[in-house]
Design a protein around this nucleic acid. Structure first.
Lengths: 202, 202
DNA sequence: ACCTGAACACCGTTCAAGT
DNA sequence: ACCTGAACACCGTTCAAGT
């Protein structure tokens, strides 16, 4: 053990890099069009590579989804970190829940993929989901300490709300999803008695 | 027009009836096993009929889903009617929301199928969804009149909650779905300040 | 009146063969 | 080191042919 092998670290071949970039672009476009269940063969075809090339870069569909989400996820995490510095713990929580919901509804089927990723440790998305959970936990802790979030609300109640609202956004509309979030946060945050949004009801 | 044709109404052939019964049984079993996206060829095979026979009885997958749900749906509607007679409009609403959630999570993928059915008039499930909406509307009206349900809560907010909770039940657990319902109803029903369920938290 | 199953178009996934 | 594409197993849907 402790071999003096400093990981050769050859730089990848130029064509491999190009294929990777093409695959990511094609996948992003197809996911946007047809959801996370988009045809992998279609993606490979539209990227101009053989199906085997897609598989050699991304062994599973979820590896590809995770790769396509990389930047978007990192931006979300950064937003989460910023909420920890937000003076109002209450506003921080609302902002976070809304942001995660919007993010998790980027493609049709994504809410489901993410919901599964929280529990499944073998999923390529588990790391990102765990990071999401951790941020949620810390943001919630502040709101709880402040007495805004009711003491009996579990962290999982918040992740459940965020994924359920993302699904609602996919299936019904962003407006319905926002209303669900508002109503539920009213139940979770002992104080709020405001009606959701100014909203032109109906 | 106004032809004197009194609809012949021949009774169906015996083998057709038997095939129909077999298809329904096989579909119910497969939906339970693999969700509403179960393979139709598998269903036909396990019912012992050719794939064409399945299609001739049920032109679309959703016609088959609707047929399989027939009895279950009728039972749910009956429960809804009963809630209209329940003395406590508040308890009626809670019971109804819970019941619809449980029903809509009978098979994996059903919450999605139902959510689509509310809007899509051409869906074979639209009739059942409309019936669901109508009952929700009447049950909600009672709770609103009583001042229990906040005045700014729309009927669609309740159907959104019910389908989102059903999806949560499919994806996470019945417990998380129940907690989502409790928390949200706390936000919707101006008075409730109870913690959700006795619940062994965690 | 109903049933059959071949036909067509599509898909996910693997892997031997190439360069 | 990476790419190719044929091969296999499966699927949804239609429709001409049967009984």
């Amino acid at each position: 053990v402790d071999s003096a092998d400093p990981q050769p670290r050859r730089r990848p071949r130029a064509d491999a890099l190009r294929n990777l970039a093409r695959l990511l672009a094609a996948a992003e476009a197809e996911f946007r069009r047809a959801g996370t269940q988009a045809s992998l063969e279609r993606i490979a075809r539209s990227a101009g590579v053989a199906i085997g090339t897609l598989y050699s870069h991304f062994p599973t569909r979820y590896a590809l989804v995770a790769a396509v989400l990389r930047e978007r996820n990192d931006a979300l995490f950064a937003l989460g970190e910023r909420q920890l510095a937000e003076p109002s713990a209450d506003r921080a929580l609302t902002t976070w829940v809304r942001a995660v919901c919007e993010h998790a509804a980027a493609y049709r089927g994504l809410a489901e993929v993410l919901a599964a990723g929280f529990g499944d440790e073998s999923s390529e998305l588990h790391g990102d989901c765990a990071r999401l959970s951790e941020l949620t936990c810390r943001i919630a802790a502040r709101a709880r300490a402040l007495g805004s979030l009711r003491a009996d609300v579990l962290d999982e109640d918040l992740t459940a709300l965020m994924t359920a609202a993302a699904w609602t956004r996919e299936q019904l509309s962003a407006r319905q999803a926002d209303r669900l979030i508002d109503h539920t946060l009213a139940g979770l945050c002992a104080h709020r008695r405001v009606s959701p949004q100014p909203s032109a009801s109906r």
